[in-house]
Design a protein around this nucleic acid. Sequence first.
DNA 1: CTAGGGTTAG
Length: 575
Amino acid sequence: MFTLSSALKACAGIGLKELGRQLHCNLIKLNVGSDPFVHVGLIDMYSKSGLMNDARMVFNLMPDKDLIAWNAVMSAHSQNGEDMEALLLFPLMHEAGVGFNQTTLSTVLKSVASLQVNYVCKQIHALSAKSGFESDRYVVNSLIDAYGKCALLEDATRIFRECLIVDLVGFTSMITAYSQSGQGEEALKLYLEMLDRGIEPDPYVCSSLLNACANLSAYEQGKQVHVHVLKHGFMYDNFAGNSLVNMYAKCGSIDDAERAFSSIPERGIVSWSAMIGGLAQHGHGKEALRVFNQMLKYGVSPNQITLVSVLCACNHAGLVTEAQKYFRSMKELFGFERMQEHYACMIDLLGRAGRLDEAMELVNTMPFQADGSVWGALLGAARIHKNVEIGQRAAEMLLILEPEKSGTHVLLANIYASVGMWNNVAKMRRLMKDCNVKKEPGVSWIEVKDKIYTFIAGDRSHVRSEEIYAKLDELSERLSKAGYIPKVEFDLHDVERDEKEKLLYHHSEKLAVAFGLIATPAGAPIRVKKNLRVCMDCHTAFKFISKIVSREIILRDINRYHHFKDGSCSCGDYW
DNA sequence: CTAGGGTTAG
């Protein structure tokens, strides 16, 4: 019987469901199936083989359900994504009078984390403290993670800082918590602290760090983490590989992303989706579709996320017919329903292509209540195509749905300005003032030799300000000779044309690029980042500049990457 | 029987 018990454990470890089931049959024949150890072994084996029904059945048929068995079935639910069921077992255990231990708490906290139920998280914390299990490292680490996932950063930090047994898992949870709450810098700092304490990294923490770098678009630091991955031999870890693809794509280096992609040992759906999404984000729409077809050829089934990236690729490549094909027959081709996100992509795509009526039609007929993203897409399209009517309708909805966002006011004002409705522009400004909505100031930054230089519009604080403005003046002359005309309609100020040109000239992204030109060697690519969308005029100007000075300009704005080269942009002006 | 990691438009 001991042999059988170990054999079950082995099956659970590698998910051998057929062999596990055979062992179960033998146990019944031998009539030793009533042993509690065997029951727990069976529950665990079925759970890890993804056979939740069988696991549940074994548990239900158990005559004397002890604490270990309850823990095993709770863990089974949690491992199979049935977190609510796992959570609901906790009060049932209390009723059954079996008590709980550190394993119960740790398991229940895992489900608390994935369900993000803040209130329950605090309760389990209190219970852990009261029962003395708070000193168990599994419980502590689970608490840190659960608080992190519930976005209760302060509580997570407090436990992390106060406990004496913080280890690699605890650090990973905390690093992930910072990264996922947008505090990538903190995450990277914590990693250094971890190394200082002599804790060696593993693939989990590397994966999390790469994600932090991706969110920060921190190319240099991402490369550093990549070095750690190589140094410690984690390059054959699928998760680390996927994170590398994502990191390089989000940091603007699609070549590195492709290299990382081809060295993943088992390219799964996440690897393919990350690659397709990365290519789409960089404007390589056709290439993204090529990779998608390659994936299908390999027999990998796409999921809903893959299709969001595919539609996005069509969007950035202007492939309306292609997108409609995938969108209309998603169910028949791939077997899943269209989600809100797919509709949003499609509406965005139709809108950009100038087919605003069709986009509007889709909004009215889709099986979801249009949310902020849908109205946002329409508003953006209305701005490109100067459609006041649809712009007003979309803005009206957005002001109700997302009143705190400043973008809506600005975009609508943009539309009014573009058609010369200055009275309405003024009204929008007043509305912004009355509602106390502040336009987020545009900030651009550039990294030169390990230092980050930030610029705001009209900035004169930089030590090399004189040179920067001189460079802009020089460029201005060469630009007009090359046929560039400032796109003044994208300026909101009701002032004369030459005054507008001057304002446009001092946009933060132009200052950053000018600085890049004087501070980096000739021919080197210039990598600039902006916290908002790049302005249409700057976009046009950069196309010209890339040709005039024979430099590649790589600009990451809030949505995507623009690669300006030889007078054109990778987004094909389709952003 | 228990803890940490990867892909989603605007």
